[in-house]
Design a protein around this nucleic acid. Sequence first.
DNA 1: CGTGTAAGGAATTCTGACACG
DNA 2: CGTGTAAGGAATTCTGACACG
Lengths: 110, 110
Amino acid sequence: MKEDPLYKNRKVITIGVVSELTGLSERQIRYYEERKLIFPERTERGNRKYSFSDVERLIDIANKRDEGVRTYEIRQEMLKDKKREDDAKIRNQMLRGQLNARFGIPKGKN
Amino acid sequence: MKEDPLYKNRKVITIGVVSELTGLSERQIRYYEERKLIFPERTERGNRKYSFSDVERLIDIANKRDEGVRTYEIRQEMLKDKKREDDAKIRNQMLRGQLNARFGIPKGKN
DNA sequence: CGTGTAAGGAATTCTGACACG
DNA sequence: CGTGTAAGGAATTCTGACACG
């Protein structure tokens, strides 16, 4: 979908730097992964790599945790948001399909 | 000058990842720093951190090296480009100053 | 000049576990 | 549940140097 040069989503930051950037301990960062709140990639030998998006998400998580929200609840919210996005995407595609079928709208920029 | 959320310029990538991203050896990357072609930041204990801009510059450097351009020459080109930019910036500021002095143009963005 | 490599040490990261609560 | 910590090992990074050319 997105272009590759979206620096924001490229997983290139090691956990130590993420820890500095977010103020979270490495233990916390790894735990949030265990709870499926964050999904780093891995280097060949297993070192975690995060994107700027991940860093922002971690800051969000940290704020919610400060408010007392549990990791399970944070995950539920995430899944809800994801569902909304996916539904919106599907509605969009259906609309395009209809328009295209009836009027032969030339394919726009995605 | 620029906003902080410019992911492109934030120095967060370790040399190992930069090596993967550019295909250059760590030795080469450190050498280009020695030759003042690249300027990573350092973590508290001395580990180098690079930005996406740095990665792109390194790829440029690698291409020029492949063409046989020497590091010294690459540096000269860099300095020339920098001077052009700086001169343009100054001309721009002078123009703003003139306009402002004569017509009191409200301060624009930057 | 540009890059490879072996050297030795220090810092990083990883996993699984025990602890407290 | 969420996080700290000590444990042991493996991988990372650093610097200064020798090598070749």
